[in-house]
Design a protein around this nucleic acid. Structure first.
Lengths: 205, 205
DNA sequence: GCAAATTAATGATTTATTCAAG
DNA sequence: CTTGAATAAATCATTAATTTGC
């Protein structure tokens, strides 16, 4: 019995370490050239092929995202529940806001925004059929909707909507508001620098 | 133009992810209280205001519906067409089409493999490194087909999947299938219990 | 202790989306 | 509108951990 060639690649500890270090350093989807280099390098520690490297990054990235998503999900679930409770307690208050908004439109809600009240008034039209200064009571239902009805929705629909692919990027620790870094880090001189978890899209389940 | 304050909010990846996660978890029209909390939370990842959150949910919900509608529409139309065509004896054509479609995936590999079979997915791009923030002329396809002569990866059978030309780096080393060489490991006392992912800090080949 | 049985991880494939050219 | 490239998500399949009864 020869070693009964295993049907799949089995990374050695060294290989694994290096791959993880690379991942940590920001590499997510290495291109062919990168894969080649990585493979060459890793082959020193044991048998390995390019596809192994490719798959490894694919899987690792995916499962990383998965993990993150689950975490967020749990977090949200908690938050949701808490909010539900709070809302039940705040029902009266919300009702007040609703009334208030009928007259002052979004004011009540606006004031809530991050405290950055510096903003002048922005054109708030709820559901685009609603003029800011109109103030007509016509929209009572909409305001109401917005205010307190229709919360705690169930997860019934199939929603998907990709953001954009800010996923091939390796975000630095503090991603500036509107940039997509997209930097391809160097390969071998791994200058280990931590980086933030990559953002990802969320998709249907 | 330093910060050049963008005239409109531009969500960071993290923000987007969280928002989508919330949406996915069922939130559709958050009320004022919810918006406030969300905004506060998201402001950790970048500048954001309540109205951004509000609009985001509005837009997202709308576009979601839109998309769903379109998809349903298409599907229904297709079904309709298929039914009609079936009834109209144009069966052959359709059948052919469908077969073709299916074969496309299988045969595709074969045919393309006139020296280069396309495996399900591999990055064929061989771009050295991307123009980091090139902005302008976007990577006009630096795809350079990676050619690996290879056979159809038949499930179950083809275990070996020989050299994808990721590199023909057979690397020669005749390392046993799944044993871990473990040669001269400097820092870590890797015992039988192979250390798994996480651990492993400070490495330097 | 130690295997069979069970479960968790993870390598490898396949399927579905998304985006951008044509 | 269609199509192809790229790749994320879902899934399959095998290996490693672990549990369990002896």
């Amino acid at each position: 019995m020869s070693p009964a060639a295993s049907s799949r690649w089995c990374p050695t500890p060294e290989q694994l370490m290096i791959l993880e270090e690379m991942y940590r350093s920001g590499i997510r989807t290495p291109n062919a050239s990168q894969i080649q280099k990585i493979t060459t390098h890793l082959s020193f520690y044991g048998k390995i092929e390019g596809k192994n490297v490719f798959y490894w990054f694919q899987n690792h990235k995916a499962r990383d995202r998965q993990k993150l998503r689950r975490k967020l999900s749990r977090q949200l679930q908690l938050q949701h529940q808490q909010q539900q409770q709070q809302q039940q307690q705040q029902q009266q208050q919300l009702y007040y806001y609703q009334l208030n908004q009928q007259n002052h439109q979004f004011q009540g809600y606006l004031d809530y925004s991050t405290g950055s009240s510096t903003l002048p008034q922005f054109p708030y039209d709820i559901s685009n059929s609603y003029l800011p200064q109109g103030g007509g009571g016509v929209t009572s239902t909409q305001v109401m909707n917005y205010t307190w009805k229709e919360d705690i929705p169930q997860r019934l629909e199939m929603e998907k909507m990709y953001g954009h692919d800010w996923m091939m990027m390796e975000t630095g620790p503090s991603s500036p508001p509107c940039t997509r870094p997209l930097q391809t880090l160097e390969l071998f001189p791994i200058t280990a620098t931590n980086l933030k978890e990559e953002g990802t899209t969320s998709k249907q389940f």
